Simulated assay, not measured.
Amino acid sequence: MRLNQNILLLGKKVVLVPYTSEHVPRYHEWMKSEELRRLTASEPLTLEQEYAMQRSWREDTDKCTFIVLDAEKWQTQPGTSEESCMAGDVNLFLTDLGDPSLGEIEVMIAGVTRLGLTKFEVKIGQGNEPSIRMFQKLHFEQVAVSSVFQEVTLRLMMSELERQWLLEKTSHVQEKPYREGASEPC
């Protein structure tokens, strides 16, 4: 998404950077895992398809995609490539054009301050119990079950009190320019 293309979020343990073409080879290797594809309801893609997907997500106006980097490795080993520091990815999808305050989320910090979101949803495969439990611990409540897609939808409604709590818990996170002035090749 163009909104996060120049934003780096620096936390104590992780750094979130925009998903760029340099991250695709490692991401593609991860997605060769049958278990990971099953847990994320993903289809196998060729490397070329993965590059095309990354480009489309970068240009899409309703997605924010970040790559999670190991902050310690990224900060303490000068010259280390981002690809070698990758630990995962997080996404925010603006799924309801009629409700701009709603975002489907895979990480909570992505949308609270910049996008003004007040509701977060996750859609998780019914068999992915670890993810379901994790989001329930974060106070997400089940709002729907789809037998067709074999997934559950959990939602968190952010009250002002919860918003303040989250901002307090993430106050150490710094927003910095990401490769200021650099543009990614098409």
Rank of each mutant, 00 (worst) to 15 (best):
I105L: 09
E48Y: 02
L166I: 13
E59R: 13
L138Q: 10
N91E: 05
E72R: 15
G98M: 03
R155E: 03
G98W: 09
F66N: 00
S33Y: 01
V148I: 14
C85T: 01
Q75P: 00
E162V: 13
K123D: 04
P177L: 10
E22M: 11
L3R: 06
S159A: 11
G103P: 00
L161A: 14
L117Y: 09
G98E: 05
C186Q: 10
R38M: 09
S159L: 05
T118A: 01
S147M: 08
R179Y: 05
T80N: 08
S56E: 14
Y27E: 14
L115P: 02
H172M: 15
A41K: 14
T61A: 15
L8W: 08
L117T: 07
Y27W: 15
L69D: 00
D99F: 07
G181H: 07
D62S: 10
V152W: 00
Y19H: 07
Q150L: 08
R133Q: 13
T153H: 01
S33G: 03
V14G: 03
R55S: 08
A41Q: 09
A52W: 12
T153R: 04
Q5C: 03
C186T: 15
W30F: 03
L10I: 05
A87L: 08
E48K: 11
D62W: 11
E162Y: 13
K32H: 14
P44Q: 13
K73F: 04
H172I: 05
E180G: 10
T80W: 02
S159T: 10
T20Q: 08
G181Y: 04
P177N: 07
W74R: 13
P100K: 00
Q164C: 06
P44A: 13
D96G: 08
L92I: 07
T20S: 06
C64K: 02
F93K: 05
Q75N: 13
F93P: 12
E35N: 07
S131I: 02
T46C: 06
